[in-house]
Amino acid sequence: MSDTPDIAEHLATRAQRDDVLELGMWTFLSTEVLLFGGLILSYFVYRHADPQAFLAAGRETRIVIGTINTALLLTSSFCVAAALQAAEQGERHATRALLGIAILLGLSFLGLKGLEYVEEYREYLVPGIDFARTGENAHGIELFFIFYFIATLLHGIHVACGIGVLAVFAALATATRASSRYVAGLRTAALYWHFVDLVWIFLFALIYLPGRNS
């Protein structure tokens, strides 16, 4: 099997094409690091300004949903890593099945996140729409939840985009000829999905864990 036509004319070899794909994705992910990094810097600044309020706000988050969601994303990352390994070994049905499981886990994550938003709305924790807290910590709790909604919505959009990309690769897994181009593309998509998981690992620690021991 030759996939020479899969290589753009400015590239010499398949290995070079794969390197370019991977380096391009890492460059894009660097900009993503700074996008979420700016948000996290603002979290640190406001947490430093009002630590007690951030501990009180952390206690108001749904740690059971947050923990289940973290486990879902970690497991979906495992499935995508395994799907890539299967694709590298030419196991196309295993690739499609694993990507399918990863997509279902991603959709479950979004479903639970939506449920969490509904519960927060019912408890008057949505700044700008329906926020009702009084006392000396009220302002800091509101700042925490502004960060919470912006960060988790931005992350949720990334999850939704990732699900779309994985769906394309799941559909292509058995629909097209096996090619090194597919594997290289899936490797790039997998990097994006793992990055989304990586961002959530830190958001989980910043949002759900503060204030649990008091």
Binding site: L23, W26, T27, L29, S30, V33, G37, G38, L41, V45
Partner: peptide, 25 residues
């Protein structure tokens, strides 16, 4: 090393952002 350097670049700039941003505190 090249791929690792690209991967580390974002976190290097993030470290500068957080370091300078939190310097005062």
């Amino acid at each position: 090393g090249v791929v690792c350097a690209f991967a580390a670049a974002g976190f290097f700039w993030l470290a500068i952002l957080l370091w300078l941003g939190l310097m005062d505190f």
